[in-house]
C-alpha cells in the first residue's frame, strides 16, 4: 500500500525542464494544437520519454520516445507534462 501511495505522488514536471539522460513518462499534454501531431508520431501518454540532446543554441531538443528520436522546440516541449521515473 505504501509503495502505491508513493507512486501516485510521482513528481510531475514539464518536458522542457527535464535534464538530458533523465528518464520520464508522458502524463498529458497541455495544449490541443500539437498533441495530435505528437500522438500520431507515437508520442502517447504512458510512453517513456527522455531528452537525448540539446541543440548547441539550447533549442530545439531531441527526445527519445516510442523507439525513435524526435526533435522538439522548447515551446513544444513546454506543453508535455511528464513524471520522472525512479
Amino acid at each position: 500500500m505504501l509503495s502505491f501511495a508513493f507512486m501516485e505522488k510521482k513528481q510531475e514536471m514539464l518536458l522542457s525542464e527535464l535534464l538530458p539522460g533523465q528518464k520520464a513518462t508522458i502524463v498529458r499534454f497541455t495544449t490541443e494544437d500539437i498533441f495530435l501531431k505528437l500522438m500520431e508520431m507515437g508520442c502517447l501518454p504512458g510512453e517513456d520519454i527522455e531528452i537525448v540532446k540539446i541543440a548547441p543554441l539550447k533549442d530545439p531538443v531531441s527526445v527519445s520516445v516510442a523507439g525513435y528520436v524526435l526533435s522538439l522546440r522548447l515551446d513544444e516541449a513546454k506543453h508535455i507534462v511528464v513524471s520522472i521515473n525512479h
Binding site: D33, I34, K37, L38, M41, P60, S62, Y68, V69, L70, S71, L72, R73, E76
Partner: peptide
C-alpha cells in the same frame, strides 16, 4: 497556423 517543429531524427 502555429509553427511546429516536430521532426524525426532518424
Amino acid at each position: 497556423e502555429k509553427s511546429f517543429f516536430i521532426l524525426e531524427l532518424p
